[in-house]
Design a protein around this nucleic acid. Structure first.
Lengths: 168, 168
DNA sequence: CTAAACTATGGAATCGATTCCAGTGTCAAG
DNA sequence: CTTGACACTGGAATCGATTCCATAGTTTAG
């Protein structure tokens, strides 16, 4: 096999896709949305993704996983790509996102602890509960539905409040 | 106001909805999806949610916030409602969710660094660049860190890959 | 020459939670 | 009786990321 990914200096769509674990459709979508620069083409019209593409796509994936939107990401990455100073709005966006991420980090850490504790507790209960007993595991979920004003993307807890469409 | 929620023994749709902070549409949706048992009706056809409904809905909200899906939840709760002990399933799902959370934490940390670096770099650039270019890119980009507006909320990075419809 | 395995394209479909819509019924107050 | 605030219904829309589709050109192996 020639899937010597690490040493690649350019990628064909399928190679890059399988290297990062997404579909070529997804790569094409990213390109459409502007988070991936349009790659040059080989003689036959195939995309030839440049060297750093793997890292780039992984970056996008990370960003998405923490709640970025492709559009937001596109704005930021485009600015970054042309190297110069970003316009204020994009700088603001990045700053807001940074705060957001930091907040998520806290919330998620708390969540991890709670969840871990919960699971541990459950395992204890399950061990001593006959299989026919309710044991009501879900009732033990002590996660507060604190209406955290909201603000973070993937943090379910914060997103759970109301969000009016017209109210903004 | 008669929002004497705590002492209610039965609820009208709107009452319950505002008590838990969701819309009646959402309650109806939950019913459709099977996470809320279909309530009895008053003479005029209005839903009369039974006593424990507030807790039930809060439970659903909590579970959603931890990453459960309405469908997963429906399966579990239906089981439980007619006497079963779905605890093992719950334990399993929670365990999976915990793994997701841990992975998410990694992504968040990486993202924080990435973003912080970028912002720092930009601020450096901005500081030494005369503001000659307004550069009003970003047409309608809301600075609002608009969280998961809805739907497709948190994609656990682990299962962010492709998901076959038929292959489950 | 042909089949398999790539590549390409634009547009449509899918998924999940929630919301919106339009039409209708019910009830209490004025 | 009318008005307003509720309630009811099924279905459609929304949003974002991803996938699927149908169609078509290229390359490589047999």
């Amino acid at each position: 096999m020639s899937d010597n990914f690490a040493i690649r200096t350019s990628w064909l769509a399928g190679e890059l896709a399988s290297a990062v674990g997404v579909s070529t459709d997804t790569l094409r979508h990213y390109e459409r949305k502007g988070v991936l620069p349009r790659p040059s083409r080989t003689a036959n019209g195939y995309r030839r993704y440049p060297e750093g593409s793997l890292e780039r796509v992984l970056l996008v994936r990370r960003a998405l996983s923490v709640g970025f939107t492709l559009d937001q990401l596109a704005a930021i990455l485009r600015e970054r790509d042309n190297g110069g100073a970003p316009c204020r709005q994009v700088r603001e966006l990045a700053g807001a996102k940074l705060l957001d991420v930091e907040e998520q980090l806290k919330a998620l850490t708390a969540m991890k602890d709670e969840l871990a504790g919960l699971v541990a507790e459950w395992d204890r209960l399950l061990a001593e509960t006959p299989m026919d007993e309710p044991a009501g595991l879900l009732h033990g979920m002590s996660l507060e539905t604190r209406s955290t004003k909201n603000g973070s993307a993937k943090l379910p807890l914060s997103q759970m409040s109301r969000k009016r469409k017209s109210q903004k």
